[in-house]
Design a protein around this nucleic acid. Structure first.
Length: 270
DNA sequence: ATGGTAGACACTCTA
């Protein structure tokens, strides 16, 4: 007998503005757990009522005014781990860790919103790029010091498209923040630090294009199809055999007043 | 090489 656990992640780009879209997402994906990034919402204004109406009884939010912000919405109980690091000592609401009361035993879940890093891929000229690299390095060191992850899932907007076919043109994006070699190397070191399994690439071969984000700035995002895979789901190696399916909700990019990211989901059989 | 769009918030920051 096995039970399923459906974990989704979405950079929602304002949880208050897009609360109605969560109903659409829920109808299509039916996640047990939904991790959000860029909620742009201080905790005291978090729309708890609308979210509990969707059936998510368990909510942990870490937000601030104007920027950033993460939240985990869940149909299954969890405890928030408050002892996790305050990355880069900035208190800027880019991570929540919870331990899920999952079938078959607890699962540690991490929801990350990695700094985007600005436009210039040079830490000497752009402090945001330096912050991004420092953030990833700090996360790498933290997971390395904890050894190989076990019964763990790490999701979020990691703001790096690591593989050649995670972007519409590898060659044209080599100097564009999100796909530069220094960021790709840093992200891969992080992945290796916990021996994480890239769950989306577990399902989709590396020679196939795979995107989760399309810029707002295209006249016709769908026709141009200049996407990038910025959103990720990683699972610890002991859960590799429990992966049963994934979904990239590309139609969400066509919703009215939507985010520039689309929801991504992985189902585990536990 | 440039600029295009979007959200929060109240000036211009962030993406």
């Amino acid at each position: 007998m096995s039970r399923s656990l459906r974990i989704a992640t979405w950079n929602i780009n304002s949880v208050r503005l897009r609360l109605p879209l969560l109903r659409e997402l829920d109808a299509v994906l039916r996640p047990d757990v939904l991790c959000l990034q860029e909620t742009k919402c201080p905790d005291e204004h978090f729309p708890h009522e609308g979210i509990s109406e969707l059936g998510f009884e368990h909510v942990s939010a870490r937000g601030m005014k104007g920027y950033n912000g993460v939240a985990i919405l869940s149909r299954i109980p969890f405890v928030t781990r408050d002892e996790d690091p305050n990355w880069c000592m900035k208190g800027d609401c880019r991570h929540i860790g919870v331990t899920l009361d999952a079938p078959g035993g607890p699962i540690d879940l991490h929801d990350f919103y990695v700094p985007a890093g600005g436009d210039i891929p040079d830490r000497a000229l752009n402090v945001k790029f330096g912050h991004k690299l420092d953030f990833i390095a700090e996360a790498t060191a933290w997971f390395a010091s904890h050894g190989e992850a076990r019964r763990s899932v790490l999701v979020g907007d990691l703001n790096v498209a690591p593989l050649e076919h995670d972007v519409w043109s590898h060659k044209q994006l080599l100097k564009i923040v999100s796909h530069t070699p220094i960021e790709v190397e840093a992200l891969m070191k992080w992945q290796q630090a916990g021996n994480w399994v890239d769950a989306l690439r577990h399902f989709v071969p590396e020679n196939e294009k795979l995107y989760t984000w399309w810029s707002y700035r295209a006249l016709d995002w769908e026709a141009a199809d200049r996407g990038r895979r910025l959103d990720h789901i990683w699972v610890s190696p002991d859960l590799r055999g429990n992966l049963v399916r994934h979904q990239i909700l590309k139609p969400a990019r066509g919703w009215e007043r939507t985010s520039d990211h689309v929801p991504v989901l992985v189902e585990l059989s536990l």
